[in-house]
Nucleic acid binder design. Structure first.
Lengths: 198, 198
DNA sequence: GTCTATAAAAGGATAGAC
DNA sequence: GTCTATCCTTTTATAGAC
């Protein structure tokens, strides 16, 4: 009867370990330990490491990609949309420090799996791009440059945290966290400013 | 007498495989195959996977970090320095598509090893930061924001290539490569523009 | 220096008892 | 549903012949 409990414990543990170490770096034993159970039970619930990993990746990816919809919401001004998007995106990553690198690394490891991921979110990249073009009043090329700039500025500082906190703050993670918090405001300014002056 | 030849073949193969798959994803067998030798010889030259990996990582990291020096070169204008830095940085990554994610992932896997990496390049992060502050005529805080913005805009589009080429160009890698080429010019504009209008 | 063969260890997966 | 014990494969590492 503790079915849901155990399944949830496994999923929590797997998310933690997979995100930290990636598919290959993570070991079933470690996930079992983290969940407070043994390896056999992992297989009982999820048959194989591959299947367990798939489940986690899908969950994690689905949490981030759909946020692009914020940028299509025509009821808000462009300024507002950018501010909200940046803030929400960065907040998710503050709460899941390993998320960005996990996604990037695993997509590189197995790019072919991406297609199913997209369809499982119910969002088509092409449609989202067109929606942004129309609602931001930009050409499609401008949208692409704009989008990549914004994602770069939001995501990279988290992906590179272990490196940058060392370079910029001599390894003081707390100081680097403040720096990131500050960026929630400065990044939208930076982006919107560049839209005006081009 | 083929000593140097073989060692070099191993290093080339190891760089290739490690960069593509990371420490855990790479297998000694695969590296041996790529080098056209057998596993035993790998161990003869480098004793263990760990030691071989260390050697590669040090090499690769040492190739990128010192480029920050470009930004300290006071004989050039700020505009020039940014243009040169962005172009050189992005060119290195065009030639080594797996480089950015490799470095970010492995630093996260073992952040403690970073200290030796820095010292082995002979560059101290603190000194570089101060040099930039003086020669760019910014406060240290401004330098940090500026530097992270620039690195984000240069590196992330490469790290996320498999994802972004799918979102932006329906998986057409050639089209995405053109997009990246275009950014060698647009990124410096973007950055310099924001410095003026703040 | 380079190879074949093999040891030794780790890790994923299953059988079977409870 | 959960555990212990065990199997099987993969992978790292070494021994020893050439």
């Amino acid at each position: 009867m503790t079915e849901k409990q155990t399944e949830q414990k496994i999923l929590d543990a797997a998310r933690e370990i997979f995100m930290r170490k990636g598919m290959h770096g993570a070991k079933m034993q470690e996930i079992a330990d983290e969940a407070g159970i043994n390896k056999a039970l992992l297989h009982y619930y999820f048959r194989s490491k591959d299947k367990l990993f798939d489940r986690i990746f899908q969950e994690v990816f689905g949490q981030l990609f759909p946020k692009l919809q914020i940028l299509v919401d025509a009821t808000k001004s462009i300024e507002e949309r950018v501010q909200i998007f940046v803030k929400e995106y960065m907040t998710v990553m503050q709460q899941n420090p390993f998320l960005p690198l996990f996604i990037l690394h695993e997509i590189q490891r197995d790019p072919d799996s991406l297609h199913e991921r997209f369809t499982s979110t119910g969002l088509q990249p092409e449609i989202v791009m067109q929606g942004m073009s129309a609602s931001l009043d930009m050409t499609v090329d401008e949208v692409k440059m704009f989008l990549v700039n914004m994602l770069s500025l939001c995501i990279f500082p988290f992906a590179a945290k272990p490196l940058l906190s060392r370079i910029l703050y001599a390894g003081d993670d707390k100081a680097y966290d403040s720096f990131l918090e500050e960026r929630k405001l400065s990044v939208p300014e930076f982006i919107l400013n560049s839209l005006k002056n081009q």
